[in-house]
Design a protein around this nucleic acid. Structure first.
Length: 481
RNA sequence: GGCGACGUAGCCAAGUGGUAAGGCAGAGGUCUGCAAAACCUUUAUUCACCGGUUCGAAUCCGGUCGUCGCCUCCA
């Protein structure tokens, strides 16, 4: 069965066929960089990270574009949130943007999220946005009032097709005072006139101003991916108005379909309620990483389908962490045995078993990126691997290598939860040597039944965060979790 | 108020017509000098509730209750 993706546009799973054979153009709405990235960003971008990793694993040439919003998002008060932050911290707007853009990438790197191929900034694409607005004006999809330009939603009959909203319904329910200069309450800004105190401003055919909230994504997606591209992703909370407006602007301006597939991720809640900037109940990625290792956070997030909401609780993430540890324990055991395994061809029965797990893993991922199902396959495989290694014993180098390779492929390359090596620092080898020395001494003590000495070595190492495990075929060590 | 999603064991969660994956926690066991880890067995006659369709439903339809998201900046 080929890859199927749930398309929010059609509200059903559809077989995925890219526009160009073997190539996938993907756009995902990125963050507005005015504050520290939080764990909700983590959920969304880890989800799309796995989508990108899997598509590449399946052989697609993926072009991944994710914007950085550094202008245009305004508060209820009409103030740009980046300007507000700049005022609060007495710094320049673009310095605020730089600070939090770096925080964002640092946090995502720490979570082992692959960087997008292109991270275009809104402020760096003002000419493209202006050109698109001019196009909309020329076609009668937009109008200018007092130096601002608005999109006329009634000029685009399909407005609402993504979120299921109707223009008529939007009129009555409007809670926010409608700007007098709009012709229709649902019309949205493409370009806003800059008041004198507004620092972020650019010249335009309509005077000094700045782009509206949504036009950046339309302009940048078209620039880098084409007018029609394969997949548009983002958080479900942006489905309206942001994503809806993107579609309206793009399809009205280009007369072409915008994204073919829409993939939206469920929100992350913290103790039952959504984290929101206005509520202030945020858990930053940095704070989360201080408590859990990145693989535990990834495993937790991947344990629910990307489209489902997920509640971040200590109990849930601890459970995911312990589950991950079982997988990692098997991986380290295999790699440990690989150090001294006898050369030999892989056992055909083991190769056959591994092929079965791989096939099942791919089937799960092909079904709308069912990461929880794929994770379950990895758990089943882990039980089998532990049995092979413990019961069968003395696996050949070929067998162990095949097992490790599959872990690297499915757990590492695709899900990003199996690290390349147990330790990556340059002191790792020395540390390993020291621990092995102590293990050898302890083995001699144990051989003489000097248990007090043996226990002392083990206990003191444990205090240093190093755990020993005595096995029939020798002692291994690992870092305590 | 309008729109949308969801409600599966103590917790997380997969499963869109064929008779309940997986992880955590719990119980018993094997292995072990002790420990740790691992493995084995076990833990939902049942999928919020009520009614309907069907030979057959957690899965489809209607209703009720509940939770969450969006409608206003938000991943």
């Amino acid at each position: 069965m080929p890859l199927h993706i749930y398309n929010v546009l059609s509200r059903q799973k559809e077989p995925f066929q890219p526009l160009s054979e073997g190539k996938v153009n993907l756009y995902v709405c990125g963050p507005t960089v005015y504050d520290e990235p939080h764990i909700g960003h983590g959920k969304t971008y880890i989800a799309f990270d796995v989508v990108v990793r899997y598509l590449r694993y399946r052989g697609y040439d993926v072009l991944y574009v994710q914007n950085i919003t550094d202008v245009g998002h305004m508060l209820d008060t009409g103030e740009d949130r980046i300007l507000k932050k700049a005022r609060q911290t007495s710094s320049l707007p673009m310095a605020v943007v730089e600070t939090y853009t770096r925080s964002y990438f640092t946090a995502m790197d720490a979570l082992n999220v692959t960087r997008p191929d292109i991270s275009p900034r809104a402020s760096g694409h003002i000419p493209e946005q202006i050109a698109m607005i001019e196009q909309l004006l020329a076609q009668g999809n937009a109008y200018e009032v007092n130096g601002s330009v608005y999109f006329a939603v009634q000029s685009f009959p399909e407005y609402g097709k993504l979120s299921g909203r109707k223009i008529e319904d939007l009129e009555g329910g409007a809670r926010v005072a409608v700007l007098d200069e709009k012709r229709h309450p649902a019309d949205f800004a493409l370009w806003k006139k800059a008041e004198p105190e507004h620092i972020l401003r650019w010249p335009s055919p309509w005077g000094e101003g700045f782009p509206g909230w949504h036009i950046e994504c339309s302009a940048m997606a078209a620039k880098y991916l084409g007018q029609t591209f394969d997949i548009h992703g983002g958080g479900i909370d942006n489905i309206f108005p942001h994503n809806e407006c993107e579609i309206a602007q793009s399809e009205a301006a280009h007369g072409e379909r915008f994204a073919r597939f829409w993939m939206l991720t469920g929100s992350l809640t913290l103790d039952g309620v959504k984290m929101s900037k206005s509520l202030g109940n945020t858990l930053t990625v940095k704070a989360a990483l201080a408590r859990w290792r990145p693989e535990a956070i990834r495993t937790f997030i991947l344990s629910a389908h990307y489209g489902s909401p997920i509640d971040f609780s200590d109990e849930a993430i601890d459970g995911a962490h312990k589950g991950w540890r079982r997988i990692w324990g098997a991986v380290t055991l295999v790699r440990e045995q690989l150090r001294s395994a006898a050369a030999g061809q892989p056992d055909p029965a083991i190769l056959e078993g591994l092929a079965g797990f791989k096939e099942l893993f791919i089937a799960r991922m092909d079904d709308d990126f069912n990461a929880p199902g794929a994770l379950a396959v990895l758990h089943d495989m882990t039980r089998q691997v532990n049995t092979w290694v413990n019961e069968q014993g003395n696996l050949t180098q070929g067998s162990l290598q095949a097992i490790d390779d599959l872990y690297r492929e499915l757990g590492g390359q695709v899900l990003g939860i199996v690290p390349e090596s147990v330790e990556s620092s340059s002191s790792a080898d020395r540390e390993d040597g020291l621990v092995r020395l102590l293990i050898d001494l302890r083995s001699q003590a144990r051989a003489k039944k000097e248990w007090a000495t043996a226990d002392q070595i083990r206990n003191q190492l444990k205090e240093l965060g190093i755990v020993l495990e005595d096995r029939a075929d020798g002692t291994i060590w690992k870092l305590a979790e």
